[in-house]
Design a protein around this nucleic acid. Structure first.
Lengths: 119, 119
DNA sequence: CCACTTTTTGCAAATCTTTCACAACTTCCC
DNA sequence: GGGAAGTTGTGAAAGATTTGCAAAAAGTGG
């Protein structure tokens, strides 16, 4: 059976059966843990996935394990997502992370730092 | 399902019924195990075949057998694939191997993301 | 016995994962 | 605003695992 299940938006494709990722049509190699983590996030794209859930589903860790390995993997995933890492993987402080499907940036909007009066 | 008894791309032909291999129109002699392994890989060309699956289908080994014989055969196959060995048989670290159908190296082509207007 | 094939063995090399120390940031409260 | 406490980001290093490889040993069929 060829159920080609994948996540897809205008910059990023994750193929769960082939275990591969493309960013802007460019194949990106993921390690196993990176892929597991990305899967856990994209499978719930748009929703917050708590740290505890990630640590349990991806690492099999119990609730009382203290580690920074999740953060490190998040950082590597963000990198491999090219320039979009920060946009895709959002940090929910004190809770977890959320993979945010791509949204075209607003055509133009003044950023706060542009608004400072130049003395 | 009419199984095509032939794998074929621009450098490599595997005939499953004759149990033979040609690389660049040159016949290559394979031993039995080499051929079984190549079959298992090319039959799923483009997909990852986990080590465990190879050890089971080609060797009949159970899940708890520790051996490096698979790696040794992979190496010999790569050699017999001429200069293309590394390109054809890809190592998926911690998972298995993948026979990758031949792809012509890109001459040069602008990728979508190169085309975005800068400034 | 001989030629050939296959498996084992023991490192070396490559790769991936986790930890660590500390910087940066968020939140909360006075 | 200005700490204090807790959380996350980060680069580098250590730790653990996997794979590559060469040579030797073991198996196979003539």
């Amino acid at each position: 059976m060829m159920s080609n299940s994948l996540y897809q938006d205008s910059h990023c494709v994750v193929d769960f059966t082939l275990a591969r990722l493309w960013v802007d049509r460019r194949a990106v190699t993921l390690t196993r843990k990176e892929y597991d983590l990305l899967s856990a996030l994209t499978a719930n794209a748009g929703e917050i996935v708590p740290r505890g859930v990630l640590l349990r589903t991806v690492w099999g860790y119990g609730p009382d394990i203290r580690t920074r390995t999740l953060d490190v993997h998040i950082r590597r995933l963000r990198r491999k997502l090219g320039g979009y890492g920060e946009q895709y993987i959002e940090t929910i402080f004190g809770v977890g992370y959320r993979f945010q499907p791509w949204r075209e940036p607003k055509p133009f909007a003044a950023e706060p730092h542009m608004l400072r009066a130049s003395a």
